[in-house]
Design a protein around this nucleic acid. Structure first.
Length: 265
DNA sequence: ATGGTTGGAGCCCAA
């Protein structure tokens, strides 16, 4: 089964792209970020027409996440625990299941955190601490689980075209990378790193300064797998071709293939 | 080139 993640930078602006991409190889589960709309305005009927069930956690203008699944799901959790005052829509979790088994999917849009001198950076770090706490809980279930999304973390210097230019950025700072490594040290595997030895594969290219044409990219969209999920991993791909489409998202889809007996219908 | 572009808001903010 295929599980994908894609920061679409507005589902309204990107609906045609997402529909075209979904019909290429029909991933069973899709995590979308930066839908930038309230739940009522999410174009669920378009995806339902392709056979997807839909869960949405949106807000006006900013952020917003959604899960599409060809299999039924339950146990939907909207929002990341640990800060009752946080009203940013950045986390959605669901358990997708069939009579062949179940997989827990967490769709996340981790805060960017720039500029680091602002209040946005401590918010990012606190959000990461909350994610670490949730990951500990999920790992204790010993289930097939996937944390997928825009992590806004450049894990290492091999994941950015110019490490020196990004060294002081909130996506690279030591406190950011330390927390990302904590997620890995809990037992989560980065699906892309687990299946590739080549470096400098990117998932985001800025709209500005011809970044795409110059391949000035960064790898910030990740799928982190529980040990039970990693045991089933057979592949991971980055669909860079969508970045060359007309009026693209600045992010491209990343997807994994798991050897799972889950069945649709 | 201390620049540049996109999206959603509503005459700037976030990325």
């Amino acid at each position: 089964m295929k599980i994908a993640t894609w920061n679409v930078n507005s589902i309204k602006a990107r609906l045609d792209h997402v529909m075209d991409w979904l019909q290429r190889d029909a991933p069973e589960i899709v995590c979308l970020q930066e839908i930038k709309c309230v739940d009522e305005n999410f174009p669920a009927e378009h995806f339902e027409g392709l056979g997807y069930n839909v869960a949405v956690h949106g807000q006006k203008a900013y952020n917003g996440v959604a899960i599409l699944s060809k299999l039924p799901f339950d146990d939907v959790v909207s929002g990341l625990a640990g800060d009752a005052g946080d009203d940013q829509a950045r986390y959605l979790e669901a358990v997708v299941s069939s009579d062949g088994g179940a997989v827990r999917v967490a769709c996340l849009y981790l805060p960017n955190g720039n500029p680091p001198q602002s209040e946005k950076y401590p918010y990012k770090l606190a959000w990461m601490d909350r994610l670490i706490a949730r990951a500990k809980e999920v790992l204790a279930f010993e289930e097939i689980a996937v944390f997928a999304g825009d992590f806004n973390v450049i894990p290492g210097d091999d994941d950015v075209y110019d490490p020196a230019a990004w060294a002081g950025d909130a996506l690279c700072l030591p406190a950011t990378r330390e927390r990302f490594r904590t997620l890995l040290n809990l037992g989560l595997s980065d699906a892309f790193s687990a299946t590739h030895t080549q470096r400098h594969h990117y998932t985001f290219w800025d709209y500005q300064a011809g970044a795409w044409q110059k391949d000035h990219g960064i790898r910030i969209d990740h799928l982190l797998l529980s040990p039970q999920a990693a045991d089933r991993l057979t592949g991971c791909r980055i669909d860079r071709f969508t970045r060359g489409w007309e009026r693209p998202s600045d992010h491209v889809p990343v997807w994994i293939e798991l050897d799972l007996p889950l069945r649709t219908g």
